[in-house]
Nucleic acid binder design. Structure first.
Lengths: 338, 338
DNA sequence: CTGAAAGCGCTAACAT
DNA sequence: ATGTTAGCGCTTTCAG
């Protein structure tokens, strides 16, 4: 592994010039820049990250804090963020919080403090005040995705609006008895998301002159299994059952479709179902959904971080643009039975 | 952020002693060790990773190379590996290869060379010779999971045996016409896995005195959608259709079950289905499967790396123990119709 | 068991 | 535009 001085010698310049030529910081004449790059290429020189970090205080690495990995939303965000970081020459260090409380604490009190990351990306997580404080104490750029973190710029879809639009779709088809499978206010996910989606649902109903019926709401845990169980309860009484169900996630919506099948209900003839997510399986099951694009959310979060890390590198991406969510109509929704 | 000298001053020792006391390398009297630890705690001292890495050549960081993130198997391995690394005080830097060829190349030719990782964990990936060579050139411990990488110790289930056992389960129930939904030899995944699973299937049939019928084999892409399409073809002719299907992944098996439903075939009365994976959805759908445990595979791979990184830290985990795979019988398999 | 001191390989003033 | 040089904050010989 050749060092920077080997490159300097081969190119006939000083190490400082090599550093400047390769990093792009500081002025170097085009001619020498090329000479240096060629020398580096020839020797297979790659900068030593620890040495560079120690000297400059920059790591070219972003820490990403994730509650779970094996959930579609998170892994999709991660995929998008990872690709975007790679393009920018940044590494991605992953901190999973799925483990026990001790490990979780060590992430905030130890791992993130090692001067290993230039910034932090926090995916929908309900952080304790103390954890949030550790993050802010880092004095580094932070961007959140999903849940609102107090004091942290956050990228998030407008949950109220998305739920409203989903409900509106059902109302527009003529449905009047619309059930909802919502989120539980569990401590794992963000507190507000379930509440906001329910608010949007109720708002849409009221706009249509309908009073939300609490008996038509069932909480579940965002999984297929949970959605199935909730749907069984929602659909069990033929006389009182809704003609349409709005589920706060695609997986719950799929559980609902499967429950309907098992109850002998035809979707969409006897029951319409709509979800939120744009999950990869939604297409296969013909599920109408409000598609969000987690991969792009990850990319966009990275752009925000890059804007903070390299001010003026280009016009900063406008902050606070709401994330796009599109209604994708498939076969699971139709007018109610006559 | 206090430095090591602040701790040394407070504890009344030299920085060398602080380093030894905190890292565990070198001898320190119990008394001073405690004094140092207390001083560090009191000041909230955390070692600077770049400085430590530069001086020691160690990074306490592992690079993990992953082809895709949003696939159950990979994200589960990652979850397990991440937790195990955290427990060992290691960071996990993620290199996703889902992007374009350029980005993929930069991972091997640039990112991994920055002296940022002490070792590499490579998840089932078909690497080019050149890529493999870059890894080996790092002169660092490498462990693979899944696909066999030439020259790299690899953790892998015995695909032939697992497929044989799955097929045996069906044979044991009395099935004689057993179809298979296998993998395509795509370039994304490892080459051998699809072939090996098919071999095990054919081996089991021959052991039972049955000649494999090529018409009962259909390739697919390991997804629900692909499994569904393959199953439609496999099951379309009532007279020639198999009474049981072995799918090389749970997702394809689920696709098969859904296809059977759509064709009006009762599972398991008219069709038995078995998969491989132990996917989180298998339980919900009542799918019989050969469960592998990707999370534990991730943990075990980390143990192997730790054994190489810290020889003699404890008795090394025995290498080459085959990974456990268990038959989990659920409602999707039963004796064939009389 | 502990301390003194020489780097680890690079970057960023400061000069020129 | 380029060179000189003093660190960056730790670890690790080498002494004692």
């Amino acid at each position: 592994m050749p060092g920077i001085d080997a490159v300097a010698r081969l190119a006939g310049v000083s190490t400082a010039t090599v550093s400047r030529a390769l990093s792009g910081n500081g002025h170097v004449s085009p001619a020498t820049r090329i000479r240096v790059q060629e020398a580096a290429r020839q020797l297979g020189y790659v900068v030593s990250s620890p040495a560079s970090s120690l000297a400059s205080g920059r790591t070219k690495n972003i820490g990403v804090v994730v509650p779970f990995l094996n959930r579609w939303f998170y892994s999709s965000v991660l995929e998008g963020a990872g690709a975007a970081l790679l393009r920018n020459g940044y590494d991605l260090t992953l901190y999973g919080l799925a483990g026990g409380a001790d490990e979780r604490r060590s992430v905030f009190e130890h791992f993130l403090l090692r001067k290993r990351v230039d910034a932090v990306l926090a995916l929908t997580i309900e952080l304790t005040n103390r954890e949030l404080q550790s993050l802010l104490d880092l004095q580094k750029p932070i961007v959140g995705i999903g849940g609102p973190l107090v004091g942290v710029p956050t990228l998030s879809i407008d949950d109220v609006d998305v739920a409203r639009r989903a409900t509106d779709h059902l109302l527009g088809l003529g449905h009047r008895r619309i059930g909802m499978i919502g989120g539980e206010s569990g401590f794992e996910l963000d507190f507000h998301l379930p509440t906001n989606r329910r608010s949007g649902y109720e708002f849409a109903l009221r706009q249509a002159g309908l009073e939300p019926d609490p008996g038509l709401f069932r909480p579940a845990d965002f999984t297929i299994t949970g959605g199935y169980a909730a749907a069984r309860l929602l659909l069990e009484h033929p006389l009182t059952r809704p003609t349409a169900v709005f589920a706060a996630s695609d997986e719950m919506a799929l559980g609902c479709m499967l429950a309907a099948r098992d109850l002998g209900l035809n979707v969409p003839r006897e029951l319409s179902v709509i979800g939120i997510d744009g999950h990869e399986y939604a297409e296969f099951f013909g599920l109408t959904t409000m598609a969000q694009y987690p991969g792009r959310q990850g990319e966009q979060a990275v752009e925000m971080l890059m804007d903070q890390l390299h001010p003026g590198r280009r016009e900063a991406a406008p902050a606070n643009v709401p994330l796009p969510v599109e209604l994708v109509v498939r076969g699971s929704t139709a007018p109610p039975p006559a």
